[in-house]
Write a protein that binds this DNA or RNA. Structure first.
Lengths: 113, 113
DNA sequence: TTGACGCATGCCGATATGGGCATATGATTG
DNA sequence: CAATCATATGCCCATATCGGCATGCGTCAA
């Protein structure tokens, strides 16, 4: 087996930095492909491909506007990611204590050598 | 170029479902590799490889305990993902309105055909 | 020392990637 | 219809993946 498809779920789709940038840009409103490409410094085919991935996982939607195709944000899919990571909130707050304990263990292990 | 390394950042590391499962399991406490492998129904080498990725992005830390090696959660890296997705919160709440507007646009476009 | 155990690593194969480039497709305009 | 603009797609390449399997390496026990 190989790596899962980028279109398999939102987690995979947003693993790509440029796709995350696209999403951030779209917070300011709908945009045609060429403008996105220009703003992100990528080629038009490049932008189209990333947009396709985002569309397939439902993070953006597109709308024809004459010659152009406007892409807009549909952030609902990001909620799942937010909630999943939120399930670890108490752990990243605890982390310092845990790191402390870890350091203690290290010291102890070193003494036992 | 190819797809970015899974170890390039936390977003890539957690794109893998099994790695997310590992992290969830570790919320209950440290565990040796073999036990993780058993609980997740994967082979020991498989678990080791996923743990390596998680370790390289800093989501887990390991500690030698005699013959075993205990892996523990370090969730701090997930905070960045939580915050990034949090930046879209108002958009997924708005989504229904926006969808509505979208539907209106569609209707209008259809009339103009 | 010799086993046995726990884990990490290396190699293989199949696959999907992301970027570049050319080109097909669609819609608008003259 | 022809020319043009906006996008999407297809193809190629180099690369990194994940899984399976064998094996190396460190640690503990007899």
């Amino acid at each position: 087996m190989a790596r899962a498809a980028t279109t398999s779920d939102v987690f995979n789709a947003i693993a790509e930095p440029q796709r995350r940038e696209i999403l951030m840009l779209l917070r300011a409103g709908e945009r045609p492909v060429t403008e996105l490409a220009r703003e992100l410094g990528m080629t038009q085919p490049g932008a189209s491909k990333h947009l396709r991935v985002l569309r397939e996982v439902g993070l953006v939607r597109d709308r024809k506007a004459g010659k152009q195709r406007l892409y807009g944000l549909d952030a609902r899919g990001l909620r799942a990611v937010h909630e999943w990571t939120g399930g670890f909130e108490r752990f990243w707050n605890e982390s310092f204590d845990r790191l402390d304990a870890y350091v203690q263990d290290l010291k102890q292990a070193r003494q036992e050598e």
